[in-house]
Write a protein that binds this DNA or RNA. Structure first.
Length: 784
DNA sequence: CAGTGAGCGAGCTTCCGCTTGACTT
C-alpha cells in the first residue's frame, strides 16, 4: 500500500502521473463527478436556501467504494482534480464522500501533465477553495432549476407529445438555428453587375500571361453595366500606377476542442461527435494531450520539442516562438491546448485516427512557425475613353513560413465572393499599353448568411460563452434527438444570371444559369423547434437571451471571488424566473402551431398547416364538422412556416390508386419509411427515381414481380402452420421463425432442403437453449 | 415496417458538466 493516494479525474492521466511520481504515490481516477443532484423533487430544497440534495449515481457506486477503501488504508490523500470550477467541486465531493477533512486535505493543481509541472504542484499544495465550490454549486443548481422547471411547462403547453426539453444551453442553440433559418427565408437577394477585364502581358520569361482587373464599381442594373461597356468601345488601356506592398500571414493558435471540431469538419468532413470519438481514442492511447480544453497554451516542454521538430525538419528560419492568448473570457484553462504528446511522431499507424492526428500535428507545429511573407501588387489601369480605373491585384509568396505545412480552413460565413485568391501578376511597368482580350459584366446576387454546420454552431456557442468543451458535442446531439433540429442536405434551385461581354469592340449578352441555395450537412430547424423556440422566447425571454449565460457567468465569478453569496445569487435569479413559470402555466394557451393557408375551393372549408401527433400535417375542415376532416402528412423538407397553399393541396393527391394488377388495386403512398406501393397486402418501396405523384402502374408491376421472384429464390422450404422458414441468406442457408434467425448446424448445412419440421424445431430449441457466443462489435466502416 | 391526427388523462419525460466503458444488431 502506497503512502500517498492521489485522485485525478481521468484514468489516462492517472497512469501518466503515477509514472512521474514514483512508488510512494498511488494515482487513481474518480471518472469525473461522483455525486449529482437527486432527480426527485429537483434535488433542491428551495425553501431551505436552495440546499442541494446529492446522491451517488449507480454507475459511480463501484468507483466510490474502491476509493473509500484506498483512502482508509493510505496515510495521505491528495486531491488533484482539474483546476477549474468543476474540478474544485469534484474534489469537495470527494472530501464529503470519503470522509476527508476539507480544512487539512491537500489540494494540488497543474494545467499540464509534465514532470516539472507535477513536481512543482506537489511542492505547493493548497486547501479546497470553497468559494469556487460554491460557484459550481450555484451553476449546477441554476441549470437544474431552468431545465426541470421549463421542460414541464412545455409538456403542459405544447400539444405535441414528445419528450420535450428546455435548458440554458440547448434552447439557445436551437434559437440560433431557428433565427438563421428565418433570416434565410426572408432574405431578398439583390443582384448587381461586377466588371472584370482580362488582359495579356508578357512575364519575365517572355511568356504571355492572362490576368484580371476589376472594374471601378458594381453596377446596380444591366443598363448601367452596358453603358459602361459601351464607353469602353475603342478605348486604349495603359498602366497608370503600380504599388507593391509587403504583407504577412500568421499561423492560428494550437487547437482547442472547439477549433479542432471546426477544422475537422471543414477539412475532413467529420461531425463533432466523430471528431471527439477519434480524439478520445488518441488521448487514451497516449498520442495526444487532453481533448476537452479551451486553452491555447503549450507547456514549456512541448515548446522545446516543437522547436526541435521545426529546426530539424525545416531549418531555424522557419521557427518563431509564439505565445497565444485566449480570446474567450469564459475560458477556464484547466488544461493545455490539444497537441501531440510526442512531436517527433508526425503520424500514427491507426487508419481511423490517422487523419485527425496529422491535422493536430500540423496545427501544433505551424503555431510555432514563422510568418509567411507576401508581396502584394496593385496595378491601376487607365481607360482612355472615360478615364475610369481598373484595378489588378496580385499576390506573390516571398517566404512560405508556416504555410509550408498548414493553412486554416474557412467557413462559408467568412468568405465573401470578393475575396478570391489573387494569382500573380506579370511584371508591369507604368505607362505600359495593354491589350484587352475581353471585358465582362457578370450579374451576381447577394447571399444570406449560411445555415450552421455542427461545427460552426459550436463556434458561435463558444463566442457567446455558452456550453463547455465537454458539452459541445452532446448538446448538438441532444437538439437533434429532441427533434428540434435536423442535419440534412438541401437541393439548390436554378437561377438565371446575365453576362454582358465586350470583345473586339462588340457587346454581346448571354444568360446563363447557376445552382443556388444548395446545402450539404447543414442544421435545419424543424417545425417543432420553431414552435418551442417561439414559445420560450415569448414567456422566458431573459433565459433565452444570447447574453444570459455571460451575465450569470459574471455572477458565478463573483461567487468564486467571495464577492457574492451563492444562495443569494440563486434567489435573485429564482424569484422572477419562478414567477414567470407560474404565470405561464396559468395564462399561456396550449400551442398548436397552426397556420391558416386558405380555403378549399371545392368545399369552402378552411385549410391549415399544423403539428399533429405524428408531425407536421395539413388539415382540411374542422374536427367539429359533420364530415371528418381530411389530413395529409407534410414532406420532411417542408415546413409549416413556408408551405404554400398549392404545395399543401398537392399532398392530397396521395394515396393514388394506379389501377389493378393481377386483379388487385395498386396504391401508392408515402409512409414512415418513404414512398411505397401497396398490392395484395404486400408493400414495395419505390425506387429513388420514382415520384409517387407521377409514377405509373407499368413501372410498379416489375417491382412486384421482381420482389416476388427474389423471395422465391431465397426460399428453400416453408412450414406454413408453424411459421418456420428455411431461407437462403448471404452466408448460406438459415432457419427463420417469426423475426428471429437460427443458425443451421454445420453437418446439416449441405442438405438444408432435406431438413424436416422436427429437425428444424430441434435446431431452434437447441439454439435457444445455448445462445451463440457474442462476437466483438464489428468495426464501423462507413463514414458519415 | 408503411394505415394514424377528437378528448380524457395514467404515468412517463427533463437540465449541464465532469468522466469512460458495456451493450448487442
Amino acid at each position: 500500500m502506497a503512502k500517498n493516494l492521489v485522485i485525478v479525474e481521468s484514468p489516462a492521466k492517472a497512469k501518466t502521473i503515477e509514472k512521474i511520481l514514483g512508488k510512494d504515490f498511488e494515482v487513481k481516477s474518480c471518472f469525473g463527478h461522483i455525486r449529482d443532484l437527486e432527480k426527485d423533487d429537483m434535488g433542491i430544497d428551495i425553501a431551505n436556501n436552495f440546499k442541494p440534495k446529492y446522491t451517488i449515481p449507480d454507475d459511480k457506486e463501484k468507483i466510490v467504494k474502491e476509493l473509500k477503501k484506498l483512502a482508509k488504508d493510505t496515510d495521505e490523500v491528495w486531491l488533484a482534480t482539474d483546476e477549474d470550477r468543476e474540478g474544485e467541486a469534484i474534489s469537495w465531493h470527494l472530501c464529503e464522500v470519503l470522509g476527508l477533512d476539507p480544512d487539512v486535505t491537500k489540494r494540488i493543481v497543474f494545467h499540464e501533465i509534465t514532470k516539472p509541472a507535477i513536481e512543482r504542484a506537489v511542492q505547493q499544495p493548497r486547501l479546497l477553495d470553497m468559494n469556487l465550490v460554491n460557484a459550481q454549486q450555484a451553476r449546477r443548481i441554476l441549470d437544474r432549476i431552468v431545465g426541470f422547471e421549463l421542460s414541464p411547462v412545455l409538456w403542459r403547453k405544447m400539444s405535441m407529445r414528445n419528450s420535450l426539453s428546455a435548458g440554458r444551453v440547448q434552447s439557445v442553440a436551437v434559437r440560433l438555428i431557428v433565427e438563421r433559418e428565418r433570416e434565410i427565408n426572408t432574405f431578398n437577394a439583390v443582384s448587381s453587375f461586377k466588371v472584370e477585364a482580362f488582359f495579356t502581358a508578357k512575364d519575365l520569361q517572355g511568356k504571355n500571361i492572362t490576368f484580371k482587373a476589376e472594374g471601378p464599381t458594381r453596377f446596380k442594373t444591366a443598363e448601367d453595366a452596358e453603358k459602361f461597356l459601351q464607353q469602353c468601345i475603342g478605348a486604349a488601356y495603359s498602366v497608370k500606377d503600380i504599388q507593391v506592398k509587403p504583407g504577412k500571414k500568421s499561423p492560428a493558435a494550437p487547437f482547442t476542442t472547439s477549433t479542432l471540431q471546426q477544422e475537422a469538419s471543414r477539412k475532413l468532413g467529420y461531425s463533432v461527435s466523430k471528431t471527439m470519438l477519434l480524439a478520445q481514442k488518441l488521448y487514451e492511447s497516449g498520442k495526444i494531450t487532453y481533448m476537452r480544453t479551451d486553452s491555447v497554451n503549450l507547456s514549456d516542454t512541448a515548446l522545446g520539442d516543437i522547436q526541435n521538430a521545426i529546426t530539424t525538419n525545416y531549418g531555424q528560419r522557419y521557427h518563431q516562438h509564439r505565445k497565444f492568448k485566449n480570446k474567450n473570457e469564459s475560458a477556464q484553462e484547466a488544461h493545455e491546448a490539444i497537441r501531440p504528446t510526442y512531436m517527433e511522431n508526425a503520424t500514427v499507424d491507426d487508419s481511423d485516427t490517422k487523419k485527425l492526428y496529422e491535422l493536430i500535428w500540423k496545427r501544433t507545429i505551424a503555431s510555432q512557425m514563422s510568418d509567411a511573407e507576401l508581396e502584394k501588387t496593385i496595378a491601376k489601369i487607365d481607360i482612355s475613353t472615360n478615364h475610369e480605373e481598373l484595378t489588378a491585384s496580385g499576390e506573390v509568396l516571398k517566404f512560405d513560413g508556416f504555410l509550408k505545412i498548414y493553412m486554416e480552413g474557412k467557413d462559408d460565413e467568412d468568405v465573401s465572393d470578393e475575396e478570391e485568391s489573387d494569382g500573380s501578376l506579370p511584371a508591369l511597368t507604368v505607362k505600359q499599353a495593354l491589350d484587352l482580350k475581353e471585358m465582362k459584366a457578370t450579374e451576381r446576387y447577394s447571399r444570406p448568411a449560411p445555415r450552421y454546420t455542427e461545427a460552426s454552431l459550436v463556434k458561435k456557442l463558444e463566442e457567446l460563452g455558452i456550453g463547455r468543451p465537454s458539452t459541445y458535442a452532446p448538446t448538438i446531439t441532444t437538439v437533434q434527438k429532441r427533434g428540434y433540429v435536423e442535419k440534412r442536405d438541401k437541393e439548390g434551385i436554378k437561377r438565371d444570371f446575365r453576362i454582358l461581354s465586350l470583345k473586339a469592340d462588340k457587346i454581346t449578352k448571354v444568360t446563363e444559369s447557376e445552382n443556388t441555395g444548395a446545402e450539404k450537412s447543414k442544421l435545419f430547424p424543424t417545425d417543432l423547434g420553431m414552435i418551442v423556440t417561439d414559445f420560450l422566447n415569448q414567456y422566458f425571454s431573459s433565459v433565452m437571451d444570447y447574453g444570459f449565460t455571460a451575465k450569470i457567468e459574471g455572477e458565478f465569478d463573483e461567487v468564486a471571488h467571495g464577492k457574492k453569496i451563492w444562495n443569494k445569487m440563486l434567489n435573485d435569479f429564482y424569484t422572477p424566473f419562478h414567477k414567470d413559470v407560474e404565470n405561464t402555466l396559468e395564462k399561456a394557451e396550449r400551442v398548436k402551431g397552426e397556420r391558416q393557408l386558405g380555403t378549399d375551393q371545392e368545399t369552402g372549408k378552411p385549410i391549415v398547416a399544423r403539428m399533429g401527433r405524428y408531425g407536421p400535417m395539413i388539415q382540411i375542415g374542422k374536427a367539429e364538422d359533420e364530415e371528418k376532416p381530411k389530413f395529409a402528412k407534410m414532406k420532411s423538407t417542408q415546413s409549416i412556416e413556408t408551405i404554400t397553399l398549392e404545395e399543401a393541396m398537392e399532398l392530397f393527391r396521395l394515396p393514388r390508386n394506379l389501377g389493378q394488377f393481377e386483379d388487385q388495386d395498386v396504391l401508392v403512398n408515402i409512409g414512415r419509411f418513404g414512398p411505397y406501393a401497396a398490392h395484395n397486402k404486400q408493400f414495395y418501396s419505390l425506387k429513388k427515381e420514382m415520384d409517387p405523384y407521377t409514377v405509373e402502374l407499368d413501372e410498379i408491376a416489375p417491382l412486384i414481380v421482381e420482389k416476388r421472384t427474389a423471395k422465391d429464390e431465397r426460399t428453400i422450404k416453408i412450414f406454413e402452420k408453424e411459421k418456420i422458414q428455411i431461407l437462403k441468406g448471404p452466408y448460406g442457408p438459415y432457419i427463420k421463425q417469426g423475426l428471429r434467425n437460427y443458425k443451421i448446424p454445420k453437418e446439416k448445412i449441405d442438405a438444408a432442403a432435406d431438413i424436416t419440421l422436427e429437425e428444424a424445431k430441434a435446431i431452434i430449441e437447441d439454439v435457444k437453449a445455448n445462445p451463440p457466443k457474442k462476437k466483438a462489435p464489428p468495426r464501423k466502416k462507413k463514414a458519415e
